[in-house]
Amino acid sequence: MTDSILNSVILLTGLGIVAALVLYVVSKKFYVYENPLIAEVEELLPGANCAGCGSPGCRSFAEKLVSSDDIANLFCPVGGNAVMKQVSAALGKEIAEQDPTVAVVRCQGSCEVRPKTSEYQGPRSCAISALIYSGETDCQYGCLGDGDCVVACKFDAMYMDEETGLPVVITDKCTSCGMCVTACPRGIIEMRPKHKRDLKIYVGCLNEEKGGIAKKACSVACIGCSKCLDICPKEAIVMNNNLAYIDPAYCTLCRKCVDVCPTHSIIETNFPPRKVKQEEVPVIKVEPVKPQPDA
């Protein structure tokens, strides 16, 4: 009885010592030197591994930061300027500050304004349905509504609005990692600067069709009428292929374009209500729109 206890104690202790020796020798023999800065920088990064910076994960981004001489073009969108400043201090390299951005969905084609003309059957994924055809509505530029962006978002910053069938960005949670932008086969989502109080003005449409066709498919489509273009005091609006685009670099958020847009396709967010007495323009339903001459 005692023997068996003793035997097992000796055996197990012996085994333990041998294993420890092997481990020690191996770890010494195969030791790989690594720049301790990498670990330090990685510690500073958010650790979301979202790939928003272009590297596959925070670790490889840290390696990139440490190994490159010029890191001015590297930026962690999740950590933002605060984290990049810390990184800059740790590495002693110059960084370029960037304005914080946020994802915006440039489509307002809800079920109500953009009627479905066909029914898609198949896997509920925008990427897959986009391979087959232009979508359930007559607009081949707008949201497909199957939520690939929501699936791609690792920060729970997006959800599908059940009523409109469109994705919604929760701006407070959005880290502007850009995963939704790449996930969308239609390129609807854009990263736009997050101004003070999250004020934004942008064209909520990507339809490049001529006015009449666009309007027929979706009542809030940009019809390319150029009214915004004419009224914009800062020349911030570009008209291309029957579609207006507001360049955030020039836009001063004056809201004049919002007022003139006949189809309400320009979106403003988080502005206080207008003080000037405004005529409420009801949502135009089937008003015939004259197709504008080609730009």
Partner: peptide, 9 residues
């Protein structure tokens, strides 16, 4: 009356 169905082959 219902919309036409589109699906892959």
């Amino acid at each position: 009356d219902q919309p036409i169905i589109v699906s892959a082959s």
